[in-house]
Each structure stands twice: as C-alpha cells, then as structure tokens.
Design a protein around this nucleic acid. Structure first.
Lengths: 240, 240
DNA sequence: CGGCTAGTTGAAGACTGTCAAAGCCTGTGG
DNA sequence: CCACAGGCTTTGACAGTCTTCAACTAGCCG
C-alpha cells in the first residue's frame, strides 16, 4: 500500500514536472531510459529489510525503482550515522565501486523495488554509462558537502526546515506534491541524519506547527507557509 | 620555507613507509607513476591564494604535488564550511567533474605546487585513468561519511583527537613522522572543519596537553601518548 | 614602535541533550 | 471484539557542553 502511494502519481503533476529543470531528474531519467533495453534483474524488498550491509561482498549496483531507503555507516564502537535517504532514481552501492565489499548499510523503510545493474557489462558496452556514474559520484560528494555545511552551521530549527525543503524538492522532481510530505522515517532516524536527538526533532516540528508554518500529523507533514519557513532559515542563520 | 618542510623528508622515514599498506598511498603513487610519461603543466602557488573558486569555469583537474590546501563550500548567505584539507597525492576539482564550473573554493595554506591534468585526454588515452578517478571519487564519499559520523556523534575532545589521528596517518603515508605534526591551518579553520569554535579547539588542545597526552606549541603538535588519546576516544564516546 | 593577525583563557549564557512520563497507534492474540 | 503489548511520538524539567563575549598575550612586519 505504501508502494501504491509511490505509483499513484497525483493529478497535480504538471506544474512540478515543468519546474524540474536542473539536476538529477534529467540524469536519472536518462539512466532509466538507457536501461530499458537491458533485461535487468529485479528485486523486491519489504520494510526494515537490509538491501546489503557494510562488509558483505559486493554483488551488484542497485537502482532504486520504488520505495524509500536509508544508507548508514557504523563505527567500530557501534555509533551509527545515517548518510542519506534514497528514493527512485538513486543508485545504491556507488560508494564502494572500487572495493570488494560494500561500505555502508542500506535498509528499506517501506516496500520497494530495486533494479540490479551489471556494472562491468554496462561500463564496457554502454559508452554513456561511465560518465553517468562519474556524474552521480560527484553529485553525491556535493550533496554530502552541502549537508556538512548545513549541519555544521545551522541550528536545530534550520536543519529541520532545510530537510523539509530538500525532501519537498526531491518529491517535486518525481512528480509529487512538494507541499504534502509523507515521511517514511522515524523521528530517531531523522534526528540521526540531522545530528539531533529525536526529542529535538519533535520539538522543532511542534514549534513550526505552533507558528502556523507547517501542519504535523505524525509522519504526515504539510507545508503551509513556504515563505515563513524561508524566513526561519534567514533569521537566526548564525552560528560560529 | 614551509615548502622545504615538505620536501625535507625526515631520516626516520623507513618504519612509516613500510607501514603504509592500505588505501590511498598506493593508488596515488600509481597515479603519479602513470603520469610520469606525460608532460604536465605545473603551477606554483603561494599561501592564501585561491587555486580556484566555486562558480569559475572549470579549466583543469589538479594533482597536489606539494603544499597544503583547504577546500570549502559557501552558502548563498555567506556561511562557509571547510570540507577537507588536501595534501600531496590528493586531486582538486574532482567534485565538479560533471559540471562546467567548479563547485568549491580551494585555497593554499602554504606554498605549493600543482600538476594540471588534462582530464579528457587522460581519460581517452589512459585506460587505467578512468577507474582510478572512480576510485578517488568513491573514496572521497566514504571519507566524507566518516567525518559526518564523527562530527555527528562525537564530543569536542574526541573530534580533535580524531583529527589528530587522521592527520598523523596521512603524514605517515607520505613518509613523515606520525607523532610530530606541523599544522598548516589556523584554529579557526580547524574549528570550522570540526564544527567547533576556535576557542573550543584551543581549549581542547590545552586540556589534552594538561593531561600529558600531547605537547602544543602553536601549530606544532607532538603526540606524546597515543594510547592515552585512544582512551579519550573510547571513554565518553557516547552521544545520542 | 604600533598595528595586525593568531592564539589563549575566563565568565556567563544558550541551545540542545538527557531523563522521565504519558499518550498514541498498530498489530496480535485471547 | 476487546485487551494488551510494543514501538513511535510528544511534552516537561533539568543538566551539560559548547558558544558567545571579552580581555589579554605573543609574534610579525611595515
């Protein structure tokens, strides 16, 4: 059913699709197009299952076709850090391209479907594939840096708002409403990603709701005042 | 003169060189070897000069041959975040391989020399080059994730210690003493990278010195008790 | 010498983390 | 069908770490 939500594109697609001029949307569409001729192994996966874990031998590269995933790294002493949330069009396992084993854990947050990419063959037989991979890698680096900037220089409220905007824009690219967000992760996971505690995340959301900027109902969040949220970012953007 | 410090390899090289079994040292040596046959454009640069800045059209990929650099991203509203410190063997500009313009600022922290790599030609004519680039990109992602983990889950003291260990290991790979560190960045830059204020960095260093774990003299730091520092990491490693 | 940058140290305060309790929702089993 | 267990979320009170603000020192160069 959660999967249905992904496929059941909303009628209000047009304005958002038109707005996706830059970035990954185009690239990944091309990627999916490129792969249409290939008979790819598909893998269905359900919530809370691991796609793979750090240290396992690397079998394949996965293209997310449906569902919502989290990637995480874990230290020797058990500290965990979620490095990102992945959705349709994202590639899983890229970070370990040069290694014999995976470098991170990937867990499905709801039911999903993955396409298994035969990296070696695609690289050798599809000329555009290699540069697409390079672009995806470079893009991941820039995105990581962008988050490092946010987490290192913004306060709790601004981190959460930044996250909401980011999620909204990604949803928009996929053809969903950017103002009606259906979160797939727990407060704890969100907090982990933003380097906050789950309580702080909850408090921020409550605070934003109290100001009339958003509407919170569990994992369902509606953005009511986009400009107001922008203000939150500008306002006390200081730190350091 | 600062450059001299880089070239004047210490006599105590042997044990450290022998220890560099894993990771980048091998790769980058290969990279330098690969490039020996090529007539590369060299570019000398002095302290506080920018190699390039975000937004400038991308001319080349640079291989650091000597010197110490910082890479940083800046937000629209002026917040800056240092994403890493680069030294011999590191590549500059990789993160913008798929873009027409650079994505970050790179500033020299002392006198240095860069080798300008003609990416397109190397990619087409040198078969091993492409996969080396891929490996470097993937490695950067893993390193970023590793720092995101550290910054998100460690306290101030542990972040500084982690940084010292990281720096020591990088020095070691280049054939320098891993216990006698010559910092090239200010406390403010170090703090920025670690998401701390410069005062906190200073305080941590003073604290570690008071415990007899290190010896601080401005930017010269000597590691006196490696095990003691390890203990700092384990001790109150908790957060979240 | 004076101005500048970089580093150190102290005191006070803010933001976020910690601990605790209670409410909510879902799925399960009697 | 209802009760209950367990995971997730919310809210409050309090404590702690780190930041902020400020003053002072040290080294460097015109």
């Amino acid at each position: 059913m959660l999967l249905d939500a992904v496929h059941a594109a909303e009628p209000c697609n047009l304005p958002y699709v038109g707005a996706c001029s830059s970035g990954r949307a185009h690239e990944t569409h091309s990627l999916e197009q490129l792969l249409q001729a290939w008979p790819l192994q598909r893998r269905r996966i359900s919530a809370k299952q691991y796609v793979f874990r750090a240290g396992q031998v690397r079998h394949a590269l996965y293209l997310v076709h449906a569902g919502f995933f989290k990637t995480a790294v874990v230290s020797e002493d058990g500290r965990e850090k979620i490095t990102g949330f992945r959705m349709r069009g994202d590639l899983l396992g890229l970070d370990a391209l040069d290694m014999p084993t995976y470098a991170c854990d990937v867990m499905a947050l709801d039911t999903g479907e993955l396409w298994e990419l035969p990296y070696a063959r695609l690289r050798d037989e599809l000329p555009q594939f290699q540069e697409r991979i390079t672009a995806l890698l470079a893009g991941e680096i820039r995105r990581d840096w962008s988050w490092m900037l946010a987490l290192g220089t913004l306060g709790a409220d601004q981190r959460v708002v930044t996250f909401l905007f980011d999620l909204a824009s990604r949803f928009e690219r996929l053809g969903f409403s950017p103002s009606h967000l259906q979160l797939r992760m727990t407060r704890a996971e969100l907090g982990n990603f933003l380097s906050l505690t789950l309580e702080t995340v909850t408090r921020v959301l409550s605070r934003l709701q109290a100001r009339g900027l958003i509407e919170v109902a569990g994992r369902e969040i509606r953005i009511k005042d986009r400009n107001g949220l922008q203000t939150v970012l500008r306002d006390s953007a200081a730190y350091h």
